[in-house]
Amino acid sequence: MTEQPQPQILIVDDARDIREPLGQYLRKQGYRTQLAANAGEARRLLDETRISLVVLDIMMPGEDGLSLCRWLVAHDGPPVILLTAMTEETDRIVGLELGADDYVTKPFNPRELLARIKAVLRRMPEPQAAAPTDRRRFAGWTHDPATRTLGHDDGRTVELTSGENRLLAIFTDHPLSVLSRARLLDLTAGRDAKAYDRAIDNAVSRLRRKIEDDPAAPVLIVTEWGGGYMLAAEVTPA
């Protein structure tokens, strides 16, 4: 049996005294690492190398970490852990809303970052579950999982990331049923997923921004306090 290679971590930070020692530390822990001083170098490495996870500094000259994080999520890139300063609370919130998986504040203990890397990698589905291919209709929307698109009766078309596509497929499989955060995480990420409420909350928030008329007052994907989330619409085959 061929042994699987260790995950490869991409560290993106313009501070050499952070990225190089961190790279050495992670290599000592058995990980492979790639280092990038800016977003441009990171994009090149992402094109050339199979990256398992990105450790990404928010504050960088040129294209900042939030912009790169947005691009990674839109293109179904690897999971992201943000490196932020203690004073960057707003940026941390924005990063999580964009789809970052976790964050660590500077200055940080490498052991804490290592623990968070392990936790995020454990949550990654392997292999990734395929979304169903049948088209569904709900509340004027038609979901086509095969093309990862949503079309509305008024002519609007929305493209979904693979994660949003799987999440919506789960909601349309269980309409009018309350799904707990733990259940949603299990269905989207597989049996080895660990409970991680914030990841599900962020995914639901991104999906709401694409399908709700007012994401701040959702009527399609509603929150059941203490329970989870529910697709509050009838679903029929398209």
Rank of each mutant, 00 (worst) to 15 (best):
T2W: 03
T2F: 06
Q4D: 09
P5C: 12
P7C: 13
Q8P: 01
Q8W: 12
I11D: 06
D13V: 14
I18W: 02
I18G: 00
R19F: 04
E20W: 10
L22H: 03
G23Q: 03
Q24D: 15
Q24G: 07
Q24H: 15
L26G: 10
L26C: 09
R27V: 15
K28V: 04
K28E: 15
K28L: 15
Q29M: 14
G30R: 14
Y31E: 06
R32N: 09
T33Q: 11
Q34G: 02
L35A: 13
A37Q: 11
N38G: 03
G40M: 11
A42V: 02
A42T: 00
R44W: 02
L45R: 12
L45E: 07
L46K: 02
T49V: 04
T49M: 08
R50L: 10
R50Q: 15
S52D: 15
L53V: 03
V54M: 04
D57R: 03
M59W: 03
M59G: 05
M59Q: 11
M59R: 11
M60L: 12
P61Q: 01
P61H: 02
G62Y: 08
G62R: 06
G62D: 13
G62A: 09
D64H: 11
D64R: 02
L66W: 07
S67C: 03
L68C: 07
L68A: 04
C69G: 04
W71C: 02
L72E: 10
A74W: 08
A74P: 01
D76A: 05
D76H: 08
G77W: 09
P78V: 13
P79G: 08
V80G: 00
V80T: 12
I81L: 02
I81F: 01
L82D: 00
L83E: 04
L83Q: 06
L83D: 08
L83R: 06
A85D: 13
M86T: 09
T87S: 14
T87I: 09
T90C: 01
T90M: 02
D91K: 07
I93C: 04
V94P: 00
G95W: 05
G95V: 02
G95L: 06
L96Y: 04
L96M: 14
E97F: 01
D101V: 10
D102Q: 14
Y103P: 08
V104W: 07
V104G: 06
T105N: 13
K106F: 11
F108H: 12
R111Q: 14
R111K: 10
E112R: 07
E112I: 12
L113C: 06
L113H: 03
L113I: 09
L114C: 10
L114N: 09
R116T: 08
I117C: 11
I117N: 02
I117D: 09
K118W: 09
